[in-house]
Design a binder for these strands. Structure first.
Length: 589
RNA sequence: CGGGGCGUGGCGCAGUCUGGCAGCGCGCCUGCUUUGGGAGCAGGAAGCCGGAGGUUCGAAUCCUCUCGCCCCGACCA
């Protein structure tokens, strides 16, 4: 491609309000342009880079037996009604009607369609296992897109689906994806870790997220450096400080004027926060979010409630802080609440509460608390489970060492779905004994645009992007200096010849044939970030060739023109080999 | 959905408080000079100031409504 005729220009200044380095540089270097909130066009440079990413996705999917196909972006609402997700997912899914007034949706993902296809295509155990995938547009009407391509509303995703006859088959395919994903990310030059994650709206039993660790990430991860435990904070477990064993004492009411918070209470009574029971009221959306239920989460005062765990415990599709009116209607008093003597409330106790005797709790009376409250004796929780939020420094659930937290961007995910979707649409097969059995499904996604943005985030400097050779939109950036395009200058003639010969040698070449000064060309080359640069100038020709350097390096080598194609091909091969050699697949767990 | 902010040539911004000729830098076009890290000089094109309504002799500026975008939170595979 010739820069003089390329569609898209570089910008000296980024548009205002742009924070993330990947966002700023992709805009400035002419890769992407915003059309609307969370909606981006990929200009030729980004398109080429994404094509490289997709090539890697295809290779690695095909390596584990994947068959590429294409499924529609527009779905009849009925397939989503059958799975129960039409009502469950809320406004994130775009819905509309066709001319016949039939309900349609824009696809957020494709489990329903795959399950529907299985209904007719999969009849016998002989047709299993299967891996199918496509690279297709998704739309999710996210409430808050941000950071350029990191979080958008319309995006392209590689989503694959595995079909198996039993849980063991699913586990095998899940593991194949686990390894394939690490290969993919390493080949793209992106370091990631796999963390255990919430299954969320997908449903299912086990899930991992592949996380690129970066301060701009929106997910909080809890990591143990000692043993490798890693989980999204949404589901992260930890060892809770144990309470001292005591005989239960008789309950006693004490005046605690003005002590509305746990800290106030601890100071007032002269006890540690772990000696108190914190009561948090939330309104939960049950039955797919249609029915509201007041929930009281009770946790020891030294910990916080994890809303994801709580939502999973009560089967809620959403939670919101409860209004004071609803709290009072249950018999509780905000600020002095406890689970004793309430009605119309689902009481969920963290397991730390059940294990801690003689806690201080509210008296459901303004200005008073109760001493020596014991779960099971003074009130009966509806649910006792782990609803505590892990945080920086808390003890690893596996080895007990202190854990740290980190921010991350989810660049891929893998889900063991089980038989849920097959059951919903009646997708089953006949086994060797002629018995009808449900199909076990798995679902696995990687967003290609988000992946591109994360790679840009990882590989850049103050001057611009520095693409790994595997995803760079071009292999070589060719810069003729000193002379107008098409002029009879020696450097230009030579560059034209090199342009032809490198392309003939199979390299993707971007030639800056614009009538620009050297400084402008260098600055734009830094910005665009092609890994190999060739400078052709009177000076270099005087030294017997052209200058070759890596984008990352400051040093150039003079290479004779006759040897140039071989030299560049060798350097490119070396860069790619380094990426392949870097592949590390952590133990599955 | 809650809180905050911003919409003025392609991009970055000033002007708005205190109403009175629509500006600056970069970019773009033409010419001359220059030519290895974002050149200099000269000339030029380009904005119904996001939109609608209102107040006023007069509105980018004041008022009302509205649309769009950004940031924080809620939410989210």
């Amino acid at each position: 491609m010739r820069l003089s005729t390329a569609f898209g220009v570089t910008l000296r200044e980024a548009p205002g309000g742009v924070e993330a380095a990947s966002h700023r540089l992709l805009l400035r270097a002419g890769y992407i342009r915003q059309l609307g909130q969370g909606l981006y066009s990929c200009l030729p440079l980004a398109h080429r880079a994404i094509t490289k990413i997709e090539d890697i996705l295809r290779e690695e999917m095909n390596r584990i037996g994947g068959q590429e196909m294409t499924m529609p972006v527009v779905h009849p609402a009925d397939v989503w009604r059958r799975s129960g997700r039409y009502d469950a997912v809320g406004p994130e899914m775009a819905r509309f009607k066709d001319r016949k007034n039939s309900d349609l949706v824009l696809a957020m993902t494709h489990e329903e369609v795959v399950a529907d296809l299985c209904r007719t295509e999969i009849r016998s155990h002989r047709q299993l296992p299967q891996v199918v995938y496509h690279i297709q547009t998704k739309f999710r009407d996210d409430a808050r897109p941000r950071a350029g391509l990191i979080r958008v509303r319309e995006f392209t995703m590689k989503d694959s689906y595995t079909l198996d006859r039993d849980a063991e088959g699913l586990a095998r395919q899940y593991r194949n994806h686990y390894e394939a994903y690490f290969r993919i990310f390493w080949r793209c030059g992106l370091p990631t870790i796999a963390v255990g994650s919430d299954v969320g709206m997908m449903g299912g039993s086990q899930a991992h997220e592949f996380m690129y660790l970066t301060p701009i990430g929106e997910d909080t991860l809890v990591l143990c450096d000692a043993c490798g435990y890693a989980a999204n904070r949404q589901i992260a477990r930890f060892r809770k400080p144990e309470a001292e064993a005591e005989e239960p004492l008789p309950i006693r009411k004490v005046a605690t004027p003005g002590a509305r918070t746990i800290r106030d209470l601890g100071e007032f009574l002269g006890i540690p926060e772990s000696g108190t029971a914190k009561a948090v009221f939330l309104t939960a959306g049950l039955d797919g979010g249609l029915r509201e239920q007041l929930v009281l989460a009770v946790i020891r005062g030294d910990m916080e409630v994890n809303e994801t765990k709580l939502a999973n415990a009560v089967g809620a599709s959403w939670l919101r802080p409860a209004e004071d009116d609803a709290i009072r209607a249950s018999g509780a008093v905000p600020g002095y609440a406890s689970p004793i003597g309430l009605h119309g409330v689902t009481v969920v106790c963290d397991d730390s509460i059940a294990a801690s005797p003689n806690l201080v709790a509210g008296a459901n009376e303004t200005g008073f608390h109760l001493l020596h409250v014991n779960a099971g004796r003074d009130y009966e929780p509806d649910i006792v489970t782990d609803i505590a939020a892990a945080s920086e420094g808390c003890a690893c659930p596996d080895c007990g060492e202190p854990m740290r937290t980190s921010r991350g961007v989810e660049v891929g995910n893998i889900f063991q779905l089980g038989t849920r979707y097959g059951d919903a649409v009646g997708a089953s097969f006949l086994d060797e004994n002629g018995e009808e059995r449900p199909i076990w499904m798995g679902s696995y996604g990687i967003g290609s645009g988000r992946l591109l943005a994360c790679i840009a985030e990882e590989h850049h400097d103050d001057y611009g992007l520095i693409w790994p050779a595997s995803v760079a939109p071009f292999d070589v950036h060719l810069l003729p200096l000193g002379g107008k395009a098409g002029a009879a200058d020696e450097s230009v003639r030579c560059a034209e010849e090199i342009y032809r010969s490198l392309r003939a040698a199979g390299l993707d070449v971007l030639m800056d044939d614009r009538d620009e000064r050297a400084g402008v060309k260098f600055a734009d080359a830094d910005l665009i970030g092609i890994p190999l640069r060739v400078v052709v100038s009177r000076r270099s020709l005087g030294r017997g060739g052209v200058e070759v350097r890596f984008r990352e390096s400051r040093d150039a080598d003079v290479i004779p023109v006759e040897r140039l194609a071989d030299e560049l091909a060798a350097r490119r091969a070396k860069l790619l080999a380094e990426l392949d050699e870097g592949i590390r697949i952590p133990a599955f767990g």
